[in-house]
Amino acid sequence: MSKLETSAALLLAAVISSAAHAESSKYGIGRLATDREVAGWDIDIGRDGRGLPPGGGSVQDGRKLFEEKCASCHGEKAEGGIGDRLVGGQGTLTSAKPVKTVGSFWPYAPTLFDYIRRAMPMNAPQSLSNQEVYALSAYILNLNGLVPDNATLDAKSLAEIKMPNRDGFVPDPRPDVKNEACSKDCKN
């Protein structure tokens, strides 16, 4: 197809798609999103790993990246600083001072990929490659004793990790506190 023909075909496709949208919807406002547009913006990773991209990353690579890009906020050993503590705390959730970290609290490992990719590092979010995000996820899981030193994680292996606190969440039972509307001689 010549350039002109391609443009004409694209224009026609756009007209048809807009017309299709206008006919089937109530207001005909907006335009249809292309698959490419959706793929570029949809960065959601499900708890079961759905949406995880191809590729993978190793604990070893993650360690280097962490030192370069994360340690200044999260601490050399991910013990916390300006940023959250990421390690330890397992077994503390029923104590008077629960320590909530990736290892002790996060229920799903793929969420780590989702969050690092969308929001970290804080000064340059969405700057890491998928490989780098896999590597950092692997390293943080390794620091928490959840994968071995020589591990390389990809979509399948990341989704297969069972986080210690996976079953630690319950639905909202409120209203759970009952107060009497006492007006005289109240105990308080």
Binding site: T94, G168, F169, V170, P171, D172, R174
Partner: peptide, 9 residues
């Protein structure tokens, strides 16, 4: 030790 989730209201 459990955490309530989706506590919207």
């Amino acid at each position: 030790g459990k955490a309530r989730q989706f506590t919207f209201y």
